[in-house]
Design a binder for these strands. Structure first.
Lengths: 204, 204, 204, 204
DNA sequence: CATGAATGAGTATTCATTCAT
DNA sequence: AATGAATGAATACTCATTCAT
């Protein structure tokens, strides 16, 4: 279960760093950030602790590495996908689909993100990395809401920014909640759709 | 900052336990659950570490004590207030008001709750204490939504359970978010009101 | 199993001391001298630790109390029984019988004695209490051997003191050994009898 | 008295382990198993406590290490020496000589063995290591007695197993007794010889 | 790059003992 | 006599980090 995977003796520095980040992520999922031990990471990567410190000089740097690694993946999964050409309703559906995809295929991303956000409250460096990404996410959703209000897809009285907060908060708290089944997610999405749609618009 | 408060030499066991729980809560807010040290708690209460262990035999028991202490307060603040006699809209306003009150006056309750929920994922005992309370909260909100749908205050197509999840998720993620000012909270509440109200109802 | 037995609230100081000594002995058998905790003793007696310290001011004094309590019983069981009127062979049989009786009925006496003897090596006070008793035992056995040599019951070339050491060492090491069944004890006694008897004497 | 001996900064793991075992043995002789402290061992070896734990992960493992180290020496000293070619009487003399040699040159072996045997009663692992060695010793002595009975060197009615128990018990209890001088040991050996020899055999 | 050995500063917990009531 | 509360000094063990090779 915690057997070293590495079979190669020497890897390029970058490969090693990625391996370290992935091992750290897996361990954070298992034991939380507070239970993360450099020795466990080294063991899982299949290297000596001193070697780990050669590649990543301190635990602080290690957590930064993990944060960046996470954020890269989070960005690729959930935002930064150009959708300007899609209708607001289609963009909303993409948000739902992206989140579900992340939840299904990269559920550890959400778990680790959750830990990092909690720690960001006390860690300036993590905060500086994570908050902008979350802000970006909120602004993308707020934008699509603004567009949908303008073209009549969504409620005319919808306030894009708090609505974005509401949508993201609902999805995130769902995924960290007690019963995050696909069926329940679909029920939540349906409710969110109804919460923002224009009741007087012709159905699309 | 870490000055001992207690000046009394001898206190009854229960008083000491409360003092310990409060000191622990304050320290969790400052340094997180992972940064919580028994020595720091003892110092803040103004007692010897051995005395701390006399009252609370282990760190595990300490965290349970904090959890129960928190939950008691959380319950008193946010739920368990009989409101059956109020209209659904009034009950909803009370939910908003309660949350804001907790956020204003007991902001540490939210911070510590957040830490505990994160830890609950890996700690059976904390989970057993916290999850039922959160479930109760969700069911109370879902109930008021169901009532409001029945009496026409809220959207006829509103699905009470995901709507409750949405409302709670929105408020919680707001309070843990980057800019939790009263103005922003009011903006969020306004959006939530519009998201659930019956667009065809006569305004109350 | 570790339930307090005491039902009386107040006992005379001496009764309490006896109860404490007995509880301590039982705990030494279970966990060894090194595992003996004053709290455990107090719990078993059914009193508070502070009360224990009222009666027995220190752990050192406690061990002395146990030692004296043990020695009293050991003396009563195994030596100090006037047998001058018996023949050497009868006295020898009494030694065997006494030891078996102690082993059968007071097996904890042997276990605790063994612990105390080990500790006596580093504890002047215990040494001063225990060694004279053991010396007395050896001298009693040596005496009966000397008598038996004189009257022709035992080997004429038997050297009483080392023979006493041999007999006592054999019985004690048997009782602390791997398979101390009554049958094996009988086999050992038989061998000891043959080892000391006069091969040229008429059988009695 | 507790001066660090080691002056070398870095040693191979095996050398360190041996140094640790030896330091632990010396400390057990001084203060007993119950008074053995990891800090004292580290100090005597001249290393940090953390370094001690690097080589020997727990106190339990440390005691196992000491046990194995002791047993190795005990075996080398006292048993496992092929003597099939010697006469039973010669073998018996070798037993006496081996024990005296151990007592003279490695008196700490006997002291530590005594502590370990006492602890073996409550420690499965130590028991599993020590008891077989003692059993082996008994069986070797029983064997030489059986041979001596067969060839007429020893009493025809000598029962080898209890006789072995008697001989070993006598020697061990002598060595742990109050006056273990060489002269007394010789007296004991003489008595043991007389106790087992064949009174009707021609002297060899 | 890699590693075995080493370490300083902690970390929760234990225990005999004391004190005020 | 008895006790709940308190404590100083220890105790085994941990962890990120460093260093010589």
């Amino acid at each position: 279960m915690t057997m070293p995977i590495a079979t190669v003796k020497r890897e390029s520095g970058d490969d090693r760093k990625v391996a370290i980040a992935l091992a750290a992520r897996a361990l954070i999922v298992e034991k939380g950030l507070e239970g993360l031990r450099t020795r466990d990471i080294a063991e899982r990567v299949g290297i000596n602790i001193a070697t780990l410190h050669y590649h990543v000089p301190s635990k602080e740097a290690l957590i930064e590495l993990v944060t960046e690694n996470m954020i890269t993946e989070f960005r690729a999964q959930s935002i930064n996908r150009p959708r300007a050409h899609l209708s607001p309703n289609e963009q909303l559906e993409h948000e739902f689909a992206d989140f579900q995809e992340m939840y299904d295929e990269k559920s550890d991303v959400l778990a680790v993100m959750s830990e990092l956000i909690e720690r960001a409250r006390r860690d300036e460096i993590i905060r500086a990395t994570i908050l902008p990404v979350l802000a970006k996410w909120r602004s993308i959703v707020a934008n699509l809401f603004a567009l949908g209000v303008a073209d009549g897809s969504f409620r005319p009285d919808l306030d894009p920014e708090p609505a974005a907060q509401m949508l993201i908060g609902a999805m995130v708290s769902f995924s960290r909640g007690p019963d995050p089944t696909p069926e329940n997610f679909e029920r939540l999405c349906a409710e969110l759709r109804r919460a923002v749609r224009n009741p007087f618009a012709s159905r699309n």
